[in-house]
Design a protein around this nucleic acid. Structure first.
Lengths: 199, 199
DNA sequence: ATAATAAATATTTTATATTATATTTATTAT
DNA sequence: ATAATAAATATAATATAAAATATTTATTAT
């Protein structure tokens, strides 16, 4: 039995940690496989036993980011004593803050995101699908509590996401100030929530 | 008196026509000042009597596009017998169709837009300001007719624009199908309109 | 057999020279 | 004087060679 040895998954995770650190500090293009390998005390060639290529490492990094963002939303969904309205506001502001923070702390990540957005649209689509189902949960909750009256929960969740694109998409983080985006986000969600209100 | 001569403005307009045609067909980068000049039967150097440089020509092209889009909205504002709700829907769909058409007919224009978005953010900001005031007019009309109850017309107009960013921004035209965007746009505006309804 | 490395090869990036183009200036025509 | 051009120059794009890096393969160790 291997006790002190690392499992394959643990090694992959170690590689991802090292890669993410470098991608965030120096960018995807300026990070070499040799450097990632060195950080893990292995040879460059050995990386290929765990990842088929550099793009897959990048994809996994992006995937981790997206999973993080999804987890933040799940935490908000788990919070008790939060109205559906406040949950919707919270998830939008949370994601906006997460994104803006990420890119102001680690500007080179923008390159990674642009790259993966182009190369792996499937990952982005999956992520949006997950977000949609999380929004749908909040809408369904709102229907139960009587706060909302949403016949098509999934369709409306999709529309909600579309309407909050500006606060949910890396593209705009570089162009606008966080404070301005936060204010706009609050007003947009306010409008949408009024639209959801039972009358 | 000059009767058969062109005025300076007419010449600028001729230059813009030629440039726009080439930018749309071959892209900003692949279009040379010499080519634009030849289309106008003049020397390359002479272009500089009318535009300080190539960037200014591009900026004027982008400006013309934005003015076109604004004009489309004004036509919709002028239409009689259209509810404020339908006006809002119409402007969003009109802009979306205009953008998508533009870029599917002339893909190289995307390069121009990216260039100007980066180099002349002031132009984009002005355009958005104009759009905001046009939306505000519709909201104010809605207040008058009793269809809406919007205390802060300008602020809400801004929020409306933010919420329809996905259908108003060149960036997304390449990523999504027109039909899908149209459906999403309709649903988003529907949500927003319900939010605006008097209750 | 599994895991890793080091060496070999294929790709990509970078640096550099060359060319093309943007812009300015000098010159000519009206 | 104004308008235009052609020639001159500055800048940017392109092609090419060199170097660096990604990926594969052969080899070694466990």
């Amino acid at each position: 039995m291997k006790i002190l040895e690392q499992t394959s998954e643990e090694i992959k995770s170690q590689i991802l940690d090292a890669a993410f650190e470098r991608f965030g500090r120096y960018g995807f293009g300026k990070t070499t496989m040799a450097e990632i390998a060195k950080d893990c005390d292995m040879s460059a060639g050995n990386l290929y036993r765990y990842y088929t290529n550099k793009k897959e490492i990048a994809a996994d990094c992006a995937g981790r980011c997206m999973k993080n963002a999804e987890q933040l939303w799940r935490e908000i969904l788990k919070q008790p004593d939060l109205s559906p309205q406040n949950r919707l506001t919270a998830i939008v502001l949370e994601k906006l803050n997460y994104l803006h923070q990420q890119f102001s702390d680690h500007p080179p990540l923008f390159e990674l995101v642009m790259y993966i957005s182009g190369e792996r649209q499937d990952l982005v689509a999956d992520h949006l699908g997950t977000l949609q189902s999380l929004v749908a949960e909040i809408l369904a909750e709102g229907n139960r509590t009587g706060d909302f009256n949403v016949p098509d929960v999934l369709g409306t969740a999709k529309a909600f996401l579309a309407a909050t694109t500006k606060f949910n998409t890396p593209h705009f983080m570089g162009t606008f100030e966080l404070k301005e985006l936060e204010n706009e986000a609050r007003e947009v969600v306010q409008l949408l929530i009024q639209g959801l209100a039972r009358r």
